[in-house]
Simulated assay, not measured.
Amino acid sequence: MTVRAVGVEIHDDGLARITLSRGEAGNAIGLETARGLLDAARTCERAAVRAVLLTAEGKSFCVGGDLREFSQLSGQALEKHLVAVTDALHEALRLFAAIDAPLVAAVQGAVAGAGIGLAAAADVTVAAENASFTAAYTGIGYSPDAGVSWFLPRLIGPKRALDLLLTNRRVPAAEAAALGLVSRVVAAEYVLAESVRTAQTLSRGPTAAFGATRRLVAAGLTSDLGPQLDREARTLAAAAASDEGREGVAAFLGKRAPDFTRTTSTH
């Protein structure tokens, strides 16, 4: 029986769990995996999920591109194939960034190439102590994809990003956390449980407010202060007037926990 390269499950609480399922191949990204991620992202978009958890089977989260697959082609055929792979992968990243639901990634073992892009794209990235990060692209004469050239400079600064991209040095989990590439590091046996707990907590939160916050942070990276302050004011006013905002304030004043799962407003 053929195992799908990417699995997706939508739970009753609105949590989507996406699993890279080619553990025996280090979850290397070829055309099937890229298209599987795009299908998963579209499923999340259609289902209006409340949070997304990205996990991977096997010892490694993702070792990057599927070089065995790529090596079967050459010349224009290879170029065409890689365009198809990156088109699907990049559209998946765009969709994950556009939906309101926050994205949590649980990473373990080797994280290389496009795997770094997936880890960096998450709003919260929980890394196992045994995780290590290697850009790898220039080591084989490639240039970055999967948003790596966009995410890395924003997360760790351009100088450090170029250090990793040009030297391909291995970065252990503790250093990745210190650099700002991952959110937190936990023992390998707890990485999945911690990631699930985080994603479940987010799935019970104010999804529209999460989406608005994600967009504000993204916009702020390239915005002057004045326009960003205006953007914050408009977004806050809309949030306060929404079902989520009213429920949040009522719960605070009533000294109870808010129930955002029953609110329906979006921004």
Rank of each mutant, 00 (worst) to 15 (best):
G254N: 08
G36L: 04
G58Q: 03
E244F: 09
A84F: 02
K59I: 04
L221Q: 15
N168C: 07
T201I: 05
E32M: 08
G180W: 12
R214K: 15
G7H: 10
G30C: 09
Q76T: 12
I99P: 08
L162W: 14
E247C: 13
A212L: 15
A178I: 04
A257R: 13
S183W: 07
G7S: 14
L67P: 02
A47H: 08
E91S: 06
R169D: 09
A105W: 00
Y137L: 05
V124G: 03
R22S: 00
E194I: 01
P153Y: 14
V111G: 00
R46W: 02
P153K: 15
G75E: 07
A120E: 01
F210M: 11
V111S: 03
I29G: 01
A135N: 09
A177Q: 15
A250D: 14
K159G: 08
A251L: 06
G254W: 10
G226N: 12
N130W: 11
I156D: 01
G180L: 13
V182T: 02
G75W: 03
L236F: 09
E232Q: 08
A5K: 04
D123Q: 07
L192G: 06
Y190V: 03
R68T: 10
A237H: 06
G109L: 00
A237Y: 05
A188W: 01
E91A: 08
L229R: 04
A98K: 15
P158R: 13
G211K: 00
H267W: 11
V83E: 12
P258Y: 12
A92M: 05
A193H: 08
R94K: 12
A241N: 06
L164Q: 04
P158E: 08
R246G: 03
T263Y: 01
V6Y: 02
A178P: 03
A131M: 03
G141E: 02
R160M: 12
G245I: 04
R214S: 14
D39M: 05
T198L: 09
R46T: 04
Y190F: 09
F96P: 10
T263Q: 10
S143Q: 14
R197Y: 06
A251E: 04
L253H: 02
K80V: 11
D163Y: 11
G109A: 11
L225I: 06
A161M: 06
A41G: 13
I140M: 09
H11F: 12
G141Y: 05
A233C: 04
V191A: 02
A51H: 10
R169H: 13
A98F: 10
A119H: 03
F210W: 11
E232Y: 13
A106D: 03
L78W: 06
G245Q: 14
T19E: 00
P102V: 05
T43S: 13
T222R: 13
G30M: 09
P153G: 15
E189S: 15
L54K: 08
L89G: 07
S132L: 14
T33Y: 07
A212I: 06
L73E: 10
T198E: 11
A120L: 02
E9Q: 10
R246P: 13
P153R: 15
V191N: 00
G147F: 01
R204F: 14
L78Q: 11
S60L: 00
S195F: 10
T125G: 05
R68K: 10
